[in-house]
């Protein structure tokens, strides 16, 4: 998919959004972040991928939330509390379950943040295609980009190679579905993993050789599909500025104008201390 806008704009946009989601977790910030992420999803039409992966992601999110609720005991507004002893295999286990409003609040925010990370990760891929991104980054960080080139080719090659290795192994009489314990299955597949590791190392080596042989690292390099600045980049820039001003500035103002004691008291109240 060929998208409008300079690859650099989209790269900065993605970095800013990832940073915002990582750093700010209050509800207002989340609202802004979600709006910007959903705008990208709408732009890249990645709903089908999100729906496709959704059933796995929802299971993961539920598990993630349950673990968080089990581990979180802090907060003032207690919704459910139970303390007792369970005897299991002659062992007495002292258990304390405490669910608070604050824990549910934080878990919900974490879930939304996680969802935004996931949405952003899926939606940003069509905007940063390797064939546009890497020639651009190669001008800035040639060594790092060389590593990325080798790594990116490694994944599809390894996937194909592991299929071929397993195929040929089957033609030699290996039955992947036969009844084995998990330990036997791992032992049987160990040589395959070793062969794949050897292959990946050798493949990366030869790829690096090919890159150098074809002039990689030359300082006067050009780009065939050179990026063009357009009015669309202005729109992306506005989105970046909007996100920074709407999220960072209020936080900065709070940090600068409100006395530290009040901030600490508010934070302690939020944590239920």
């Amino acid at each position: 998919m060929q998208t409008r806008g300079h690859i650099f704009s989209w790269l900065v946009y993605a970095i800013i959004l990832f940073s915002l989601i990582w750093l700010f977790d209050d509800l207002f910030a989340l609202l802004i972040e979600s709006f910007l992420v959903l705008w990208i999803v709408w732009r890249t039409k990645q709903w089908s991928t999100i729906i496709q992966q959704g059933k796995w992601m929802i299971r993961f999110l539920i598990l993630f939330s349950l673990i968080q609720l089990v581990l979180r005991h802090d907060g003032q507004h207690v919704l459910l509390e139970w303390q007792g002893t369970i005897t299991l295999f002659n062992f007495d286990l002292n258990l304390h379950w405490r669910t608070t409003m604050e824990a549910i609040n934080d878990t919900t925010i974490s879930m939304i943040r996680f969802l935004m990370f996931w949405f952003l990760f899926i939606a940003i891929q069509p905007l940063l295609p390797t064939k546009r991104l890497l020639p651009f980054t190669a001008q800035l960080f040639p060594d790092g980009t060389q590593m990325i080139y080798m790594t990116l080719r490694l994944v599809p090659v390894l996937r194909e190679r592991s299929k071929h290795l397993l195929d040929v192994l089957q033609t030699r009489g290996f039955q992947p579905d036969s009844n084995r314990t998990w330990k036997q299955s791992i032992l049987v597949r160990l040589p395959l993993l070793q062969a794949l590791l050897d292959e990946s190392l050798e493949g990366s080596w030869h790829r690096a050789e090919a890159m150098i042989a074809r002039g990689y690292g030359n300082h006067k390099r050009t780009i065939y599909a050179a990026e063009q600045w357009s009015w669309f980049d202005l729109l992306i820039l506005l989105c970046i500025l909007f996100s920074i001003f709407s999220i960072w500035v209020p936080e900065l103002l709070v940090a600068l104008l409100i006395p530290f004691e009040i901030q600490r008291a508010y934070a302690q109240q939020r944590r239920g201390v």
Binding site: K131, H206, A210, R214, G215, Y216, K220, R221, I223, Y224
Partner: peptide
């Protein structure tokens, strides 16, 4: 230089990218 195994020399994911790779490096 074209080495023996073509699989291990391909750098770019698409054909056009692979074709112009060398020319890009040489400016």
């Amino acid at each position: 230089f074209v080495m023996q195994d073509p699989e291990q020399q391909i750098i770019m994911p698409d054909v056009l990218g692979e074709l112009v790779f060398g020319m890009e490096q040489l400016g």
